[in-house]
Amino acid sequence: MNNTLKKNDMKTAYIMLLPIVGLLTVFVVIPLLYAIFVSFYQWSFYQDSIFVGFSNYLLVLKDQAFYKAMWTGIKFALIVIPIQFVAAFLFAHLIKNLTAKVGGFVKTSIYIPHVISGVVASIVFMFIYNYNGGLANYIVSLFGSEPIPFLADVKYALGSISLPAIWLGFGFTTLIILAGINDIPDSYYEAAEIDGANTFHKMIFITLPLLKNVFLYVIVVGLTGAIQQFDLAYVMTNGGPLNSTMTPNLFIYTHFKNDPYMGYTISAALLLFVIIGVISALMFRLINSKQVED
């Protein structure tokens, strides 16, 4: 390859990257560095800040509530992601076999929840979960059961807020997986058929391996998104009952709102950043994507 051309290409590439790198620097990198700096202070808005070393971090790390919130976030993700993933995978296959017209209609329909804001969804689901006459309790009453406090019982609350999360993310996940499925050349399946493969074989040896990168994307994005869930828990339960829906972000927000000093909030947020980074790295390692490693 021509060396000068390559050099020019590189330059163009860098120049094109400049705006986004600039924006990221101003809005992400610098605030992050500033947050790290501030996390070592007892930061008050109206008094001189006092350098306190690692004591903010120690306070967070000693706090059981912090671990409980992290665990709640992970539990929430473990409910939402597998269900959403399996449902989306199956539904994507269904859409693939539909005619173009019907498929287009179905695709649009299932994508609609994705553009609905979490707050709106929360309010809709609050009506559904209403104790006195909500849809969910109407269905429960058809079976002759007492109304269930979906949002106020420790047993149900996290599951109840997971449902709108699955509903909201389902369409998006389906479309991504569908795109992945459509990318697999038909000739692979034809070749497999000639070799006598059945549907099950085709799924195991062709579809799943070739969708690995798509799965990786869907799971990592879904997982980090779910752990960071805020609005559903904030609107529907405000973290209750007994902190059973206190997701990490809501936990941090609650401290931000109530604490006289910001040290705890910032340290907790930075620790969450590290934890989510580690989880994402683990996912990459676990699924071990060739293309991603390149």
Partner: peptide
């Protein structure tokens, strides 16, 4: 650019 934009004050967060 970014230090100009953020207005560097070196006395601690305030």
């Amino acid at each position: 650019i970014s230090s100009i934009l953020t207005g560097c004050s070196g006395t601690g967060p305030a």
